Amino acid sequence: MALRSGVRLDTVVIAHREPRIEASLEAELLHGQVPVRRLSDRVAAAVLGCEKRPRVLAVGRRPLPCTLDALARRTGDIVVLDGVRLVGNIGAIIRSASARGAAGVVLVDPGPVAVHDRRVVRASRGLVFALPVVIADRDDLRRFLQSSDIPLVSLTATAAVPLAGLAAVPRRVTLLLGGERRGSSRELEDLAEHRFAVPMASAVESLNVSVVGALALFVRRGP
Protein backbone atom coordinates (compact mmCIF):
# COMPACT_ATOMS: atom_id res chain seq x y z
CA MET A 1 0.00 0.00 0.00
CA ALA A 2 2.87 2.39 0.75
CA LEU A 3 4.36 1.81 -2.69
CA ARG A 4 0.99 2.24 -4.39
CA SER A 5 0.49 5.50 -2.50
CA GLY A 6 3.71 7.00 -3.81
CA VAL A 7 5.94 6.39 -0.78
CA ARG A 8 9.56 5.99 -1.83
CA LEU A 9 10.93 2.67 -0.55
CA ASP A 10 14.68 2.17 -0.35
CA THR A 11 14.59 -1.56 0.40
CA VAL A 12 12.19 -4.29 1.47
CA VAL A 13 13.12 -7.13 3.83
CA ILE A 14 11.20 -10.42 3.77
CA ALA A 15 11.49 -11.90 7.26
CA HIS A 16 9.19 -14.88 6.89
CA ARG A 17 9.44 -17.38 4.09
CA GLU A 18 6.13 -17.87 2.34
CA PRO A 19 6.35 -18.42 -1.43
CA ARG A 20 2.97 -16.82 -2.17
CA ILE A 21 3.92 -13.61 -0.36
CA GLU A 22 7.37 -13.50 -1.90
CA ALA A 23 6.11 -13.99 -5.46
CA SER A 24 3.40 -11.30 -5.26
CA LEU A 25 5.71 -8.85 -3.50
CA GLU A 26 8.59 -9.34 -5.85
CA ALA A 27 6.43 -8.71 -8.90
CA GLU A 28 5.25 -5.39 -7.51
CA LEU A 29 8.63 -4.34 -6.11
CA LEU A 30 10.46 -5.25 -9.30
CA HIS A 31 8.13 -2.91 -11.17
CA GLY A 32 9.00 -0.15 -8.69
CA GLN A 33 12.72 -1.03 -8.81
CA VAL A 34 12.87 -1.61 -5.05
CA PRO A 35 15.65 -3.94 -3.82
CA VAL A 36 14.46 -7.03 -1.94
CA ARG A 37 16.44 -8.68 0.86
CA ARG A 38 15.71 -11.84 2.83
CA LEU A 39 16.41 -12.82 6.42
CA SER A 40 16.86 -16.43 7.37
CA ASP A 41 14.46 -17.75 9.97
CA ARG A 42 17.30 -17.88 12.50
CA VAL A 43 18.34 -14.25 11.96
CA ALA A 44 14.72 -13.04 11.85
CA ALA A 45 13.99 -14.73 15.19
CA ALA A 46 17.12 -13.21 16.75
CA VAL A 47 16.44 -9.70 15.47
CA LEU A 48 12.63 -9.53 15.58
CA GLY A 49 11.69 -12.09 18.21
CA CYS A 50 9.45 -15.08 17.82
CA GLU A 51 6.05 -13.61 18.71
CA LYS A 52 4.13 -11.37 16.30
CA ARG A 53 7.08 -11.30 13.97
CA PRO A 54 6.39 -9.12 10.92
CA ARG A 55 6.56 -10.97 7.64
CA VAL A 56 7.71 -7.97 5.63
CA LEU A 57 9.64 -4.84 6.63
CA ALA A 58 10.47 -1.81 4.54
CA VAL A 59 12.84 1.11 4.79
CA GLY A 60 11.42 4.18 3.09
CA ARG A 61 11.09 7.94 3.06
CA ARG A 62 8.42 9.26 5.39
CA PRO A 63 5.74 11.19 3.44
CA LEU A 64 5.61 14.94 3.95
CA PRO A 65 3.11 16.03 6.64
CA CYS A 66 -0.34 16.99 5.41
CA THR A 67 -2.04 20.24 6.50
CA LEU A 68 -5.58 21.24 7.41
CA ASP A 69 -5.71 23.54 4.39
CA ALA A 70 -4.88 20.60 2.15
CA LEU A 71 -7.87 18.72 3.57
CA ALA A 72 -10.14 21.66 2.70
CA ARG A 73 -9.10 21.34 -0.96
CA ARG A 74 -10.08 17.67 -1.08
CA THR A 75 -13.57 16.24 -1.43
CA GLY A 76 -15.40 14.24 1.22
CA ASP A 77 -16.03 14.64 4.92
CA ILE A 78 -13.25 15.10 7.48
CA VAL A 79 -12.95 12.96 10.62
CA VAL A 80 -11.57 14.55 13.80
CA LEU A 81 -10.37 12.30 16.63
CA ASP A 82 -10.17 14.39 19.81
CA GLY A 83 -8.15 12.68 22.52
CA VAL A 84 -8.29 9.26 20.86
CA ARG A 85 -4.98 7.62 21.72
CA LEU A 86 -5.37 3.88 21.21
CA VAL A 87 -3.53 3.07 18.01
CA GLY A 88 -5.91 0.24 17.14
CA ASN A 89 -8.85 2.63 17.16
CA ILE A 90 -6.98 5.27 15.17
CA GLY A 91 -5.96 2.74 12.54
CA ALA A 92 -9.45 1.25 12.29
CA ILE A 93 -11.00 4.70 11.79
CA ILE A 94 -8.45 5.57 9.10
CA ARG A 95 -9.41 2.34 7.36
CA SER A 96 -13.15 3.13 7.52
CA ALA A 97 -12.58 6.72 6.42
CA SER A 98 -10.62 5.50 3.41
CA ALA A 99 -13.36 3.03 2.52
CA ARG A 100 -15.99 5.77 2.51
CA GLY A 101 -14.06 8.40 0.57
CA ALA A 102 -13.33 10.80 3.42
CA ALA A 103 -11.00 13.75 2.76
CA GLY A 104 -8.79 12.82 5.70
CA VAL A 105 -8.43 12.33 9.43
CA VAL A 106 -7.31 14.91 11.99
CA LEU A 107 -5.70 13.79 15.26
CA VAL A 108 -6.13 16.23 18.14
CA ASP A 109 -4.25 15.45 21.35
CA PRO A 110 -3.22 11.93 20.25
CA GLY A 111 -0.53 11.70 22.93
CA PRO A 112 2.77 10.19 21.82
CA VAL A 113 1.22 8.50 18.77
CA ALA A 114 2.95 9.38 15.49
CA VAL A 115 1.03 9.36 12.20
CA HIS A 116 3.16 6.58 10.75
CA ASP A 117 3.60 4.60 13.94
CA ARG A 118 4.07 0.97 12.87
CA ARG A 119 1.00 0.02 14.94
CA VAL A 120 -1.15 2.57 13.10
CA VAL A 121 0.21 1.23 9.81
CA ARG A 122 -0.78 -2.30 10.84
CA ALA A 123 -4.22 -1.38 12.21
CA SER A 124 -5.08 0.67 9.12
CA ARG A 125 -3.78 -2.09 6.81
CA GLY A 126 -1.40 0.47 5.32
CA LEU A 127 -4.15 2.92 4.40
CA VAL A 128 -2.50 5.57 6.57
CA PHE A 129 -0.24 6.05 3.52
CA ALA A 130 -3.21 6.53 1.18
CA LEU A 131 -5.38 8.87 3.28
CA PRO A 132 -4.11 12.26 4.57
CA VAL A 133 -3.74 12.28 8.36
CA VAL A 134 -3.03 15.57 10.13
CA ILE A 135 -1.96 16.23 13.73
CA ALA A 136 -3.36 19.58 14.93
CA ASP A 137 -4.09 21.34 18.18
CA ARG A 138 -7.55 22.62 19.10
CA ASP A 139 -6.78 26.26 18.30
CA ASP A 140 -5.59 25.35 14.81
CA LEU A 141 -8.71 23.27 14.25
CA ARG A 142 -10.99 26.04 15.48
CA ARG A 143 -9.42 28.54 13.07
CA PHE A 144 -9.66 26.01 10.26
CA LEU A 145 -13.37 25.40 10.88
CA GLN A 146 -14.09 29.11 10.92
CA SER A 147 -12.17 29.84 7.74
CA SER A 148 -13.26 26.81 5.72
CA ASP A 149 -16.96 27.03 6.59
CA ILE A 150 -17.20 23.26 7.03
CA PRO A 151 -19.70 22.57 9.86
CA LEU A 152 -18.58 20.49 12.82
CA VAL A 153 -20.83 17.54 13.70
CA SER A 154 -20.45 15.94 17.13
CA LEU A 155 -21.09 12.23 17.66
CA THR A 156 -21.92 11.92 21.34
CA ALA A 157 -24.01 9.55 23.42
CA THR A 158 -25.90 12.46 25.04
CA ALA A 159 -27.28 13.91 21.80
CA ALA A 160 -31.06 13.96 21.35
CA VAL A 161 -31.05 13.29 17.59
CA PRO A 162 -30.37 9.70 16.37
CA LEU A 163 -27.47 9.04 14.03
CA ALA A 164 -29.76 8.50 11.02
CA GLY A 165 -30.27 12.27 10.92
CA LEU A 166 -26.65 12.68 9.86
CA ALA A 167 -27.54 11.58 6.32
CA ALA A 168 -29.75 14.66 5.89
CA VAL A 169 -26.97 17.23 6.45
CA PRO A 170 -26.55 18.59 2.91
CA ARG A 171 -22.95 19.86 2.98
CA ARG A 172 -19.65 18.16 3.61
CA VAL A 173 -18.98 18.04 7.33
CA THR A 174 -16.30 17.50 9.93
CA LEU A 175 -17.18 14.54 12.15
CA LEU A 176 -16.02 14.91 15.76
CA LEU A 177 -15.26 11.76 17.76
CA GLY A 178 -13.90 11.86 21.30
CA GLY A 179 -11.98 9.39 23.39
CA GLU A 180 -14.09 6.71 25.06
CA ARG A 181 -13.23 7.77 28.61
CA ARG A 182 -13.84 11.51 28.47
CA GLY A 183 -15.46 12.11 25.12
CA SER A 184 -14.52 15.14 23.05
CA SER A 185 -13.31 18.33 24.70
CA ARG A 186 -15.75 21.05 25.72
CA GLU A 187 -13.76 23.47 23.58
CA LEU A 188 -14.59 21.56 20.40
CA GLU A 189 -18.06 20.45 21.50
CA ASP A 190 -19.06 24.11 21.79
CA LEU A 191 -18.21 24.58 18.11
CA ALA A 192 -20.53 21.79 16.90
CA GLU A 193 -23.46 22.85 14.74
CA HIS A 194 -25.13 19.41 14.88
CA ARG A 195 -25.08 16.56 17.42
CA PHE A 196 -26.08 12.94 16.83
CA ALA A 197 -26.11 9.78 18.92
CA VAL A 198 -26.11 6.07 18.10
CA PRO A 199 -29.30 4.50 19.54
CA MET A 200 -28.38 1.68 21.95
CA ALA A 201 -30.10 -0.73 24.29
CA SER A 202 -30.29 0.61 27.84
CA ALA A 203 -27.99 -2.13 29.13
CA VAL A 204 -25.14 -0.92 26.89
CA GLU A 205 -23.17 2.02 28.23
CA SER A 206 -21.05 2.85 25.19
CA LEU A 207 -19.60 1.67 21.89
CA ASN A 208 -16.00 1.52 20.78
CA VAL A 209 -15.07 4.81 19.11
CA SER A 210 -13.97 3.07 15.92
CA VAL A 211 -17.39 1.40 15.68
CA VAL A 212 -19.16 4.75 16.09
CA GLY A 213 -16.89 6.29 13.47
CA ALA A 214 -17.61 3.51 10.98
CA LEU A 215 -21.37 3.74 11.57
CA ALA A 216 -21.32 7.50 11.06
CA LEU A 217 -19.27 7.30 7.88
CA PHE A 218 -21.57 4.70 6.36
CA VAL A 219 -24.74 6.56 7.40
CA ARG A 220 -23.29 9.77 6.06
CA ARG A 221 -22.51 8.47 2.59
CA GLY A 222 -25.62 6.31 2.26
CA PRO A 223 -25.75 2.84 0.65
Rank of each mutant, 00 (worst) to 15 (best):
R42D: 15
V121A: 11
R122G: 03
S96Y: 01
V133Q: 05
D117W: 04
V105S: 00
G60I: 05
R95I: 10
V84K: 00
H31P: 07
G104Y: 04
G6V: 02
L30S: 15
P35W: 13
S40H: 12
E51C: 06
A114I: 04
L64A: 14
E28K: 15
E51T: 13
P35Q: 12
V13D: 09
H116T: 03
V7C: 07
A102K: 04
A99P: 06
H116V: 06
D77C: 09
H16C: 11
P19S: 07
R122K: 13
T75E: 15
V87M: 13
L71R: 03
V121E: 09
I14W: 00
R8L: 10
G49N: 09
P132S: 07
A72N: 11
L71H: 02
S96L: 03
H16D: 14
R53H: 10
Q33S: 14
L48G: 08
V120Q: 03
E51F: 13
T67Q: 03
I90K: 01
I90N: 03
G32M: 07
A102M: 09
D117V: 03
R8P: 02
D41C: 03
V113P: 12
E26D: 13
G88L: 09
V108F: 02
I78S: 01
V105D: 00
Q33E: 15
I14A: 05
V106Y: 00
S40C: 05
L127W: 02
L39P: 07
I94Q: 01
V84F: 06
R8G: 01
I93Y: 01
V79S: 03
V106I: 08
E26K: 10
C50H: 12
A27D: 10
R74L: 13
R62T: 14
S124P: 09
